[in-house]
Amino acid sequence: MQDEIKIVSADALVFRLPLEKPVSTSFGTMLDRPAVFVRLEDDRGTVGWGEIWCNWPACGAEHRARLLVSDIAPRILWRSLPSPKDLWRELTAATEILVLQTGEVGPYAQVIAGFDMAYWDLTARRAGSSLAKAMSDMAAHQVRAYASGIHILDAERMVAEARSVGYRDFKVKVGFDFDRDLDLLRRLHADLRPGETLHADANQGFSAEQGRAFLRATDNLGLGWMEEPVRVDSDDVLWADLAGLTSTPLAGGENLIGEPAFQSAIASGSLSVIQPDAAKWGGPSGCFAVAQAARAAGRRYCPHFLGAGIGLVASAHILAAAGGDGMLEVDINPNLLRDAIVPRWPIVRQGWVDLPEGKGLGVEPDLQQLASFQTMRLVAEERS
């Protein structure tokens, strides 16, 4: 039986890191790097860390932080709590009417996901286990990682840089200029070395016809996958049509919310690679269940992630617990919010990274290094 756990404080820490070069996708541009960390502390002094997805809109980080301390924290402080999975389901169900009332399905899912991540970290630390082992006794100790966040215009340089620090798999962003992107992708493919794989991500940037044309034109490149070639809410007929046009596996999942959506995506068979983001929906509780379902159906589980260091490490633990042939996404653009964790992580060797040693996540944010970028800290600690 799980020891009685009582959370006595829940903090939301907001950071904003200025960027020398904005991060661009087919749908928008990040002018700075935001992050929201969740810090939970129990009545024994055990601390757990989580991360809430907040990349868009630009004002989203502060909103998520306030949502955590004003709405989610009062539901959990100073009461005996169930297991992480049961509490995740409880919080999701308890906020269903609020989600309908506000229309904010994304923000609530993201805040609950970040809380779930921190609660898993805390409970694993209390149990003296790594997060991966707390989720599965069969968890691996290392995962394969791929270099991501590579704009097609910068890809030649960035792939070379990623290769030099140990990566063997690379994902480039397309969906900006059809002909130019296609030409550059072909050049990248021609320069691959034995054992290396190239993936492409359109971030929902193509129309149906453009998606069809791009998949046909790249069918002979042996891409590891084509991610979100069209809008995620396109009907099943279009997704099935796209899957039938090419030998390239289709990937998606970062923009799906809720167990039914993932169940449908897995059952349809159009997506060969399932990519939930543990800071955006589900946390470890929801994403591990999706990973298990995906693997049982013969799909690959490759967690999406584009954020700071806490969520990245959590994604690695979930992947290690899930097993299989999945890969960890690591955005290789400069990002102190990703790098300012102790101990230093990840270190890539021949495309693989070892999980951090230690309890829970095995890392903590380096708040001293991040102090000049912290813009807000909200604390919920009153008895309800």
Rank of each mutant, 00 (worst) to 15 (best):
V353E: 10
N203W: 13
R44V: 02
A202F: 06
D233W: 15
V353Y: 14
W120P: 05
I76N: 01
I257L: 05
N203H: 15
A217I: 08
L215G: 04
L87W: 07
Q292P: 01
D3A: 11
E196R: 08
A340K: 04
W225K: 11
L256F: 14
I97K: 11
P107D: 07
G252Q: 06
V143M: 10
G253R: 14
Q374W: 06
V348G: 13
G50Y: 00
A10M: 15
M117I: 04
T95K: 10
W239G: 01
G309W: 01
R187D: 04
I341A: 11
R186M: 04
L355C: 08
F176H: 02
L98K: 12
Q369S: 13
L378I: 05
M226L: 13
R344V: 07
L192S: 12
V47I: 15
I274P: 04
W78M: 10
L271E: 05
A190W: 01
A113C: 09
V14P: 09
R231D: 04
D154T: 08
D183L: 15
G362L: 07
G326V: 09
V111T: 13
F27K: 03
N220H: 15
R89T: 02
S264T: 15
L198I: 02
G283M: 00
P343V: 14
F115V: 13
I76Q: 10
L319D: 01
L355M: 12
D325K: 11
D241T: 14
T102Q: 04
W239A: 01
A147T: 01
W53Y: 15
E161G: 03
V165N: 06
V105E: 06
V363W: 03
A134D: 01
M327A: 13
R216S: 03
D121L: 03
S270K: 10
R300C: 03
H141W: 03
G269N: 09
S164G: 09
L77V: 07
T46Q: 06
L185A: 10
E381Y: 11
G166W: 02
V342A: 10
G252R: 08
G149L: 04
E51S: 08
A296I: 00
G286A: 12
A139L: 00
S129L: 15
R338F: 08
A58R: 08
R66S: 14
I112V: 15
E96D: 10
V379H: 11
N203A: 15
A118T: 00
D179S: 01
I5K: 03
V232N: 05
S129V: 01
D11S: 12
L13T: 07
P334A: 08
L182T: 03
A289P: 03
I76A: 02
D366Y: 09
I266A: 12
H63V: 14
P356E: 12
A113G: 08
G283D: 00
A113F: 04
G298K: 00
R349Q: 14
L306N: 15
G48L: 09
A147W: 04
Q292I: 07
A291E: 08
S9F: 11
R66H: 13
F115D: 05
G360D: 06
G309K: 09
T218E: 07
D43Y: 02
